[in-house]
Write a protein that binds this DNA or RNA. Structure first.
Lengths: 109, 109
DNA sequence: TAGAATACCTTGTATAACAAAGTAGTATTT
DNA sequence: AAATACTACTTTGTTATACAAGGTATTCTA
């Protein structure tokens, strides 16, 4: 039965990832590994192979921009930052999230 | 941009469907069309092609049972009801849901 | 200078949901 | 009685998301 629960949890997390990325970048710019760290800290496990394509997708949608920055300890990092378009999408996602939360409430009654 | 928002919403709903089905059947037994109605009422749009395979999956996992019942206005209906196993999974899903909600809180800070 | 570490990226796979079409029993209309 | 509409259940093919696993490139360190 454990595998069912794990699957449920992972399914629930899916679809919230994009939202989480924007929320994180709304606070301050960050590069992939640091985003993964923050997500892990909040119990939202993500791997590189998931995050990179997602960042690229959001960039292509005009929600993010990035700039390269030299690191003092390693190769250069791609710092992503949110755009105005991304910020206005967050407002809509906030609403969508509230809707979801109250949907669950409604169904539980 | 509207299509992005719609996609986000649909992504957020995904993964919560299984949970919602169990919550609904935890209140009282129901057949597919009535489940779709209740979900629609709570703003969680689902179509037949999504729901039927899901019910069959949950039945095969031992979370649900069903019985046929004649209808006064149409073909017989397959009434699904939750099992003990399904009920105990709900408790775990409640926890998972709480975790998700607080994850979002944490990230938003 | 060889290896370790960091960071970015790509490919193949599994799965969930959807769109659309199909099957079949029951009710209604002509 | 036959044709049509309606209700309900089911299946098939497609799309999209995330993951696992592997790959490339740059920088640091022993």
């Amino acid at each position: 039965m454990e595998y069912i629960v794990d699957n449920i949890k992972s399914q629930m997390r899916k679809g919230l990832l994009e939202y989480c990325i924007l929320l994180i970048l709304n606070k301050k710019e960050a590069y992939a590994s640091s985003i993964i760290e923050e997500l892990k800290h909040a119990n939202m496990i993500v791997v590189e192979g998931t995050l990179y394509p997602l960042l690229i997708r959001q960039k292509n949608q005009g929600l993010l921009n990035y700039r390269w920055e030299e690191s003092t300890q390693g190769p250069p990092r791609k710092y992503y930052m949110i755009t105005d378009k991304g910020r206005s999408l967050i407002s809509e996602m906030d609403l969508a999230w509230q809707e979801i939360v109250s949907t669950i409430e409604t169904i539980r009654k």
